[in-house]
Amino acid sequence: MEARLKPSRLRPERELEAFIRRLSGDGAVVSFVGIARPTGRDGEPVIGLHLDHYPGMTEASLAEIAADALKRFEVSDVAVVHRCGHVSPGDPIVFAAAAAPHRRSAFLAADYLMDRLKTDAVFWKREDGVDGSRWIEPTEGDHTDRDRWREPSAGDR
């Protein structure tokens, strides 16, 4: 399992190559690359995104999400590499991957990783635009996506 912050340029092709190289016997790898968008939710241009983090806490949140995916799905390995600091529009911001003997588990684990990263990774995200900056939070849709993975409690049954 790998979970780390990347304060400099993220190169997804290198991350995927390194991930595949360390595998042995898996038949499926699913990866996802998130790209910083050039516009905000309101459609206004974004000139940059800044991801602030709390040293130690942010890394622990990434590791917890990756470890949870390993426990929950029949996968042999997962990787999460997330940018921090300034990210320009069009630049990769996150790389997530899962490896498994068969594709279904790898797809599910990668989907789970991203749903959790969007809502549970400890970051403070600021969009910088031509008219100023604003802090952004996960959307209601992001929380709905994450909540579909929630285990039902005794009261839900």
Rank of each mutant, 00 (worst) to 15 (best):
D68C: 06
T119L: 05
A63Y: 05
A66F: 05
P55V: 02
S133V: 05
G85F: 09
I35H: 02
R14V: 14
L70K: 13
L16P: 06
E17N: 12
H53G: 01
R103K: 10
H102K: 09
I47E: 14
A66W: 00
S105A: 13
T39V: 10
H53V: 07
H143A: 15
V30T: 03
R9K: 15
R72A: 06
R11C: 14
F32V: 00
E74C: 13
R150G: 08
F73D: 01
G141M: 08
L117Y: 04
R9V: 14
G141K: 12
D26L: 10
V75N: 04
P7I: 06
A69F: 09
V30Q: 02
D52T: 15
S133M: 01
R21V: 12
G48W: 03
F32G: 00
H86V: 15
I35T: 03
A69C: 11
W124Y: 10
R14P: 08
D42R: 02
I20R: 15
A99L: 03
L113V: 05
T119E: 05
D77R: 12
C84V: 14
P92A: 11
F19T: 09
G40V: 01
L51C: 02
R72H: 10
L16S: 07
P12G: 05
R150Y: 11
G25K: 02
R37T: 04
S153H: 13
G40F: 05
L5I: 04
R116L: 06
E15K: 01
T39G: 01
D42M: 00
K6N: 11
G90P: 07
S8P: 06
D156N: 11
R37F: 04
T58Q: 02
E13S: 12
V87D: 06
R37K: 09
G43N: 03
P7Q: 07
L70Q: 15
S24T: 15
G34E: 04
P12L: 07
